[in-house]
Simulated scan of single mutants.
Amino acid sequence: MIRWCRNNPLAVVWGITVLVWGVAIAIFQPQIPQVAPYPFPQVIPLADWTFTDSQPLTPDQTPDSQDIPGEVVSGQRYDYHQGDTHLHIEMRYLAQTNGDLKALIKHQTGSLGTVLKSVESVGEFSLFTQGDASQLDACINPQGTSTVTSDQFKRNRTLYDWRSGRFLGWILGQTPLHDNRCLWTRMTFSTSSDATSAAQAQALASTWKDWHQWWQSHFPPSAKTP
């Protein structure tokens, strides 16, 4: 063993460095930050839609709470109309989440694969139509595209959190390595017109692009450790 160490000094130095680094991380592991309730804007502009109303969501207004991954910190409901067509949007700010909406969606649709959609530069979302209403669910990420499953959320966080320099803050014990927050968005589009299911779904997907774009530059600021 001693002979091997003499013949491989760089390997020894690297091994010691990794050991010291690991011990330092274990000692100075940052605390999980307390995410403060986010005061949602009362009005959010949405192209081609007329704003009707906005109200905070209370904890008892969270459907299927057992399927919500993480802590619901705060929420807001927004209502818009466009003639005889109505748009109802519920936003919930989730902390310490894995972004997994699969169980929630499966309870409503019976399947995830048939309702999972994707739009380039926007991301993944679920979309289905029942009768005269279409519903969309997605997780708006702090950075990057929207997601529906935990795998998508994890890939997004790994990619963008490393790019944002969080690794250095993690090493210094100032912030968690990953920003595990999400704006769970549920959009419901209903109309009394004779629009087909395909037309409803297309209109809702178009509205979702505008909504997601607005939140990309207005996502709640990240929490800091005490």
Results as ranks from 00 to 15, higher is better:
147 T>R: 02
19 L>D: 06
217 S>N: 13
200 Q>N: 08
190 S>T: 14
55 Q>H: 08
43 V>L: 10
162 W>E: 12
1 M>F: 14
106 K>L: 09
208 W>C: 06
44 I>V: 11
38 Y>W: 11
15 G>Q: 06
137 D>E: 10
216 Q>Y: 02
17 T>S: 15
25 I>Q: 10
48 D>C: 00
212 H>P: 00
44 I>E: 02
9 P>W: 05
151 D>G: 09
59 P>I: 03
150 S>T: 02
191 T>D: 06
53 D>N: 13
170 W>A: 07
133 A>P: 00
171 I>T: 11
26 A>R: 10
29 Q>F: 15
147 T>Y: 00
154 K>G: 04
111 S>E: 10
28 F>M: 07
19 L>C: 14
139 C>D: 05
91 M>D: 13
15 G>N: 06
160 Y>G: 00
26 A>F: 06
52 T>Q: 15
158 T>C: 04
75 G>D: 03
184 W>G: 00
43 V>R: 09
24 A>N: 12
211 W>F: 05
202 Q>H: 12
3 R>Y: 08
200 Q>A: 07
41 P>W: 04
64 D>T: 05
203 A>L: 08
52 T>G: 07
220 P>L: 03
82 Q>A: 05
40 F>W: 08
121 S>A: 12
114 T>R: 12
67 D>K: 10
171 I>E: 07
185 T>I: 09
131 G>S: 04
95 A>T: 01
124 E>K: 15
107 H>I: 03
57 L>R: 05
182 C>T: 03
221 P>H: 10
159 L>N: 11
76 Q>N: 10
36 A>D: 11
43 V>H: 08
103 A>Q: 08
55 Q>F: 07
110 G>S: 06
39 P>H: 06
138 A>Q: 08
155 R>L: 14
47 A>D: 08
111 S>G: 09
28 F>K: 12
79 D>K: 11
35 V>F: 03
105 I>E: 07
129 T>E: 10
7 N>S: 13
44 I>T: 06
47 A>L: 08
150 S>N: 06
84 D>T: 13
73 V>M: 09
99 G>Y: 01
130 Q>F: 12
222 S>K: 15
208 W>A: 12
143 Q>A: 15
135 Q>H: 02
165 G>N: 03
6 R>K: 14
152 Q>F: 01
10 L>D: 05
20 V>L: 15
113 G>C: 00
166 R>H: 08
29 Q>V: 12
149 T>M: 04
6 R>A: 13
104 L>R: 11
163 R>G: 15
163 R>P: 00
209 K>R: 15
40 F>R: 03
128 F>Y: 13
13 V>K: 07
193 S>G: 11
52 T>F: 07
127 L>Y: 05
96 Q>S: 09
